[in-house]
């Protein structure tokens, strides 16, 4: 099965592993990520103000392309996912959509209004809901037996809970179930859905470091030997926190378990 795929700016540059292994693992798991043509950067953050129209256009163009392809839109980066899913939810409000569509009509390939029809799906959600973690487990050739891995959700995968609707925002299980499907042992710890410091890395690197260190220490104190994330900025902050825990993308972990990593070594 083919799905529309939105990689985002960082997956084309600093987070190539997050992108490459997502594509390769999809082939093993029986689906194909078809990159949206001419996608534009989502902007990294959803601006919640009701009069912010122009900042939504790049996401709406990608959503519209997926609608025209008749496919769900799959994202891997937590930030892109957050922006695009929230934009899609906002487009279900007719008054807001009317303003955005008025801009969209200026696009030379404009066909029809977009009103939030596309299904937006994080890669992890796709694995859980469409492929099934049971099926993922059956394809594992290198089980990650004995590895104690702490899932780091951060903010963007889960919040706002009502819109993201991926998991319980205060007691999520999707990443732990994913880790279990790969044969490893998930480590649950209190800071797994607290902020890593995010874009404060640009504004005040020391403050961001305090945040990310409190996350990695919380994981280490609960027995984790590694951290796994879906977000390039979380990974950056956690690596820079000074903690010795290795930080992996979830797609790297998946690639290791499915034998994709060694096949591409």
């Amino acid at each position: 099965m083919k799905v529309s795929y939105y990689p985002g700016c960082t997956l084309r540059n600093k987070a190539k592993d997050l992108d490459f292994y997502a594509r390769e693992c999809a082939k093993v798991l029986g689906f194909e990520l078809e990159e949206v043509e001419d996608w534009q950067c989502c902007g990294g953050a959803f601006t919640s103000s009701s009069d912010e129209i122009a900042t939504k256009l790049s996401s709406v163009r990608a959503l519209k392309a997926a609608k025209e392809a008749g496919q769900p839109l799959v994202t891997v980066c937590s930030a892109c996912h957050n922006v695009i899913k929230r934009t899609n939810a906002a487009m279900k409000d007719p008054a807001f959509a009317a303003k955005v569509n008025a801009y969209m009509k200026q696009d030379k390939d404009f066909t029809e209004d977009y009103n939030g029809e596309t299904e937006v799906c994080h890669y992890l959600e796709y694995l859980r809901d469409k492929v099934g973690f049971d099926e993922v487990a059956k394809k594992v050739v290198n089980p990650l037996t004995g590895r104690k891995i702490a899932a780091y959700y951060g903010c963007l995968l889960l919040r706002p809970g009502k819109v993201m609707a991926m998991d319980d925002p205060e007691n999520p299980v999707i990443l732990e179930d994913f880790i279990r499907a790969l044969g490893a042992e998930p480590v649950v710890y209190p800071a797994r859905n607290e902020c890593c410091g995010g874009y404060m890395a640009i504004e005040n690197a020391d403050a961001a470091k305090k945040r990310s260190l409190s996350v990695s220490e919380s994981a280490a104190n609960h027995g984790a030997a590694e951290l796994v994330t879906a977000c390039p900025l979380c990974r950056y902050n956690l690596v820079k926190s000074g903690s010795e825990l290795p930080v992996l993308y979830f797609t790297e972990l998946l690639a290791e378990a499915l034998g994709v990593k060694e096949a591409n070594a």
Binding site: G8, C9, T10, G43, G198, Y199, L233, Y236, V239
Partner: peptide, 18 residues
Amino acid sequence: RIDDDMPQQAIVTAFRKY
């Protein structure tokens, strides 16, 4: 304010916020 490892995501997000 950046180093070689800084993801593009941090820069675009900071601009959107600031």
